[in-house]
Amino acid sequence: MIEIKNISVTYPDGTSAISDISLAIGDGESAALIGANGAGKTTLLLSIVGVLPAERGLISVDGIELGKKSLSEVRRRVGMVFQDPDDQLFMPLIYDDVAFGPRNLGLSEEAVEKRVDAALSSLGIAHLRDRSSLRLSGGEKRIAAIATVLAMEPTMMIFDEPTAFLDPKARRNLINLLRRLPHGKLIATHDLSFAEEVCPRAILLKNGRIFADGRTGELIRDDRLMDECGVEALR
């Protein structure tokens, strides 16, 4: 479970990125984070995993409060999938990319291999194990990036624009995959139909603040609400 209480993040130039945000995502719950560009979606995700430290407020994951000492434990429990899979795939082989996290956990090579194989098999990409990410399609890269996070065995997963750059078939595969994953999920997206299919709950952000929080199907069809957030409603 992720609990966020009154967090604020300000960039070094003084710009307030998010302010006074409070929300909770339960175990197994899927929530979409929707908002215009610059609304603070990515900043919120990065602050949950401690990449962008919040100057005020409190973040806790499974009851563990985010702090310097608990940073690695929080990052083990919350897996973040970045917008661009190329940011996440930097090793010579997919195997090494997926093994990167478990190795950092200090697991033995046998345990690492088990985790890698389990992550790749569960996503149906075991055949990519010994391939280089440079030779994969956009859809394959996206799934491989998810595998790199799954191998850490997180309890919660957060995604930044997971459908960006995907063709319709790859997007459909991703939707089916995310629906199968039992983890709690917080997904920042502009893709409203995707949000509706994967997340029963949606959180609307506007200028770094929560503007609305409710059922995805209702929020994304509310013209007035979506217009105020700078997002086009789904028709």
Binding site: R75, D87, F90, F100, V149, M152
Partner: peptide
């Protein structure tokens, strides 16, 4: 920086 952030998120230190 983004790659490094992705590394940190998977426990790199």
């Amino acid at each position: 920086e983004r790659v490094y952030n992705a590394m940190k998120c998977r426990g790199y230190d």
